[in-house]
C-alpha cells in the first residue's frame, strides 16, 4: 500500500501513527510532509529506522518550494508528479493520512 503524508511531523502525528500502524509498503511525502525527509531533523531517526519496511519518496516540487531539496535524507527518492502517478498506479491501494 502507498501511504501519502502531507503533514509536517512537527505539526501532526500522521507520519508517526502511520509508521506505528502499517506493516510496510511505500510512503510518499507531499506538501508539508516533505519536512520529515530532511537531514538532521528530530524526526529523521524514526523515518530512517522505518526504511527497512518502507520505501520513502518525497515530491520534488514541494521540497524545492520549501528550500530543502538540497538536504534530503539519504535513501529518500525524489519524484515529480509523474512519479507520484506511477506510485499510485503501482500500488493496489493508497491512503492519504490527513
Amino acid at each position: 500500500m502507498l501511504h501519502i503524508v502531507n503533514k509536517s511531523p512537527f505539526e501532526r502525528n500522521s507520519l508517526d501513527t502511520l509508521l506505528d500502524t502499517s506493516p510496510g509498503g511505500a510512503i510518499l511525502l507531499i506538501e508539508d510532509g516533505v519536512y520529515a525527509a530532511t537531514k538532521g531533523n528530530a524526526f529523521e531517526p524514526k523515518l530512517k529506522a522505518a526504511m527497512d519496511k518502507f520505501k520513502v519518496y518525497a515530491l520534488q516540487g514541494d521540497l524545492e518550494a520549501r528550500g530543502i531539496a538540497d538536504r534530503v535524507t539519504d535513501g529518500v527518492a525524489m519524484v515529480d508528479y509523474g512519479g507520484f502517478v506511477d506510485l499510485v498506479a503501482n500500488n493496489k491501494t493508497n491512503q492519504s493520512w490527513l
Partner: peptide
C-alpha cells in the same frame, strides 16, 4: 492493536480518510 489495524488497512480496496 495498531498492527492489527494496519493489516486490515492493507486488505482494503478503497481507503477514504477524513
Amino acid at each position: 492493536s495498531r498492527a492489527e489495524l494496519g493489516k486490515l488497512m492493507d486488505e482494503q480496496d478503497v481507503v477514504l480518510s477524513f
